[in-house]
Write a protein that binds this DNA or RNA. Structure first.
Lengths: 157, 157
DNA sequence: CGTCGAGACGACATCGATGTAGTTCGAATT
DNA sequence: AATTCGAACTACATCGATGTCGTCTCGACG
């Protein structure tokens, strides 16, 4: 259903434009192991990192969490959990960070249950909007194609 | 109920013990204006800050948010909102930080509504547990008394 | 081949939040 | 009033995350 051919791949700068973070951030995340590109890690000067669609999705989730004031470390743990559930239908799922760990909740009911008993703060990321957003951005960035001529400048934004 | 009458007051170090933060943190928050003690700000070396019950509650909410990885700045904005709703019955309320602002939600239904339409991350603090916790800690800290004959100011609400 | 550009790398600077240590003052106690 | 103690103050160090800049290297293309 998702318009992913075999496997789209994205360069670092492309990912940055897609999700709206700086290259330094992505670079830092890759260097510190917070988010390793699935397709190809850097192997030295001149090499190129290659990111997966799911990588980009994770980056976008991380950015969302950062925007919400959540620290990188916590964001990373949350994304670990997200990765575990990648098989599921994420569009109808929310990523919930509880004080004791992160889970994927597949309904509002589950969320309410979690809130009920929990003490502490919950960070909730409705994944639907993140995925929609990302899809739109991918389309906007060069007709849905990821590779090729690195997608011309998108109006410099 | 014999305990906590109208207006207890707490010293800085007391607040720290109550909510489990370091004095340095509370000090920093007071100095940077993030959380000004309601009853008495510091007026120089040797002076003493005096905190309100609601101050302590706010501190505890801030700590909860910090534990959840939320930045101080965002936490502060959230607490602003909390302060606005201090009149209400907070025990059955959740503090919800949305991407666009913070609100007090008085039911799970409200929360679900918020989640439904929103994009981005939500930080949700069920206040009941915070309040319970705090009450228990206050009792544990000296029989419910806040501090001996220390200042009893009206301080309004 | 030699040039060139994109992107990774390295060494810094910065900024917010906090820890540590020592100093100084106000106020309660003697 | 003098002592003492607690708490605020000052100055510095630290740590994570990021910005800046300059360098290096791979790969493409002339």
């Amino acid at each position: 259903m998702t318009t992913r051919s075999t496997e789209q791949s994205y360069s670092g700068p492309q990912v940055c434009r897609l999700v709206g973070i700086t290259y330094r951030q992505l670079d830092y995340w890759a260097r510190t192991g917070l988010l390793v590109p699935s397709l190809a890690s850097a192997t030295g000067s001149g090499s190129k990192r290659r990111y997966d669609y799911t990588d980009v999705l994770e980056v976008k989730v991380i950015k969302s969490l950062l925007d919400a004031g959540v620290s990188l470390q916590r964001a990373r743990r949350a994304v670990d959990c997200l990765r575990d559930g990648l098989g599921q239908d994420l569009a109808s799922t929310s990523l919930v960070l509880t004080p004791t760990g992160s889970v994927l909740a597949r309904s509002n009911g589950e969320i309410v249950d979690l809130l009920q008993g929990g003490q502490g703060v919950f960070n909730i990321v409705p994944l639907a909007s993140v995925i929609d957003d990302l899809q739109a951005d991918i389309v906007a960035l060069g007709d849905g194609r990821a590779e090729g001529p690195a997608a011309r400048h998108p109006a410099t934004a």
